[in-house]
Simulated assay, not measured.
Amino acid sequence: MTEPQRIKGRGAASNREGRFESTTRLAEDDGWASAEAEPTPRPATTVREERARSIISRNDSPDVPFAQSINPYRGCEHGCIYCFARPSHSYLNLSPGLDFETRLFAKGNAAELLRRELARPGYRCAPINLGANTAPYQPIERRWRLTRQVLEVLAECRHPCTIVTKNALVERDLDLLAPMARERLVQVFVSVGSLDNRLASRLEPRASAPHRRIEAIRALNAAGVPCGVLVAPVIPALNDRDLERVLEAAAAAGARVAGYTLLRLPHELKGLFREWLEVHVPQRAAHVISLVRQLHGGRDYDPDFAVRMRGQGPLAALIRRRFEVAARRLGYARTRELALDASRFRAPAADAGPQLALFD
């Protein structure tokens, strides 16, 4: 059987079957391989447009600080191997591995649906998060501009939103974000798990480099857009050593709020992450998994809302204490969320045909 190999520019090394698949595919070495064999080919990114039926997702999870979110894309080209959204590709009969980062879906009618949902008589305004599941500013956003279109609708309606991203492309939309910030309608968080470029290029191969994300934090805050930092995910024996350094760099760039989360390995992500460890850091693989299990009560992952983000046990307590001490020393605010103003919301006009538009 052939061993998984690193594919440059991609996080996953294979296309493992999803948990709903009834068949399993296994690669075999037929004996014809040689030292001069060509390296593993790089799979190309494909994007298919889909017509979504709804655009606002809602949750009541007690450990999630927002009740509404929008994901303009399915799948994510950033290719972060630790992404907890990878298992969602199984619902599309695709692999959470390479398929998740190469076979993408763009909700071309996102802005249209958003306008329609905000115009409903029963709609109650509450901050909408962009980036809850898949990245709103992944590379394909440069061409599709769906996140930009969603922001235009939110700005027009004076609807508050929060953004989580690990791509400096967010700077492109400063012309929308800065006016929204003046009305307390937006807060941005940039995710930075490590300042090690070499490690980041393997963990999250198509996201912006760590130093570029820090510059994005600086640019947003300089423009008056409140931008904090998320040290996420913290992975013991891999990037946890950078916790304080990330907080220091972000504070120097103007961040005044910060948060962190620990690595989560739901469903198929367990196998994918183990495979990544064996390809990139085989000498540390067993140790990393051992520490991850210590954070989750002896399991690869504990889905309990009370512990899934922060873990449990002595190691989790140590990481939490390190974060608290560094945040206090650097002057970060105690609360992670800014009080956004939902009172300015004005519903968009419902579709009433071209005749009533004459009276606008």
Rank of each mutant, 00 (worst) to 15 (best):
A126Y: 14
N129K: 02
P136K: 11
P136L: 02
Y137A: 10
P139G: 12
E141T: 13
R142I: 14
R142T: 14
W144K: 14
W144R: 14
R145L: 05
T147A: 09
R148S: 14
Q149K: 14
V150I: 15
E152W: 04
E152P: 05
V153S: 06
V153F: 09
A155P: 04
C157R: 06
V164P: 07
V164S: 07
V164T: 15
T165K: 05
A168R: 12
V170S: 02
V170I: 15
E171V: 11
E171P: 09
D175I: 08
L176E: 03
L177M: 05
P179H: 07
P179V: 10
M180V: 04
F189S: 02
F189Y: 12
V190C: 11
S191G: 08
N197G: 15
R198F: 15
L199W: 07
L199M: 13
R202Y: 11
R202F: 13
P205H: 13
P205T: 14
R206K: 13
R206F: 01
S208H: 07
S208R: 03
A209Q: 09
H211A: 09
I214D: 00
A216G: 11
I217S: 06
R218A: 06
L220I: 11
N221Q: 13
V229I: 10
V231I: 12
V234R: 07
I235G: 00
I235N: 01
P236W: 00
P236G: 05
A237G: 02
L238T: 06
D240N: 04
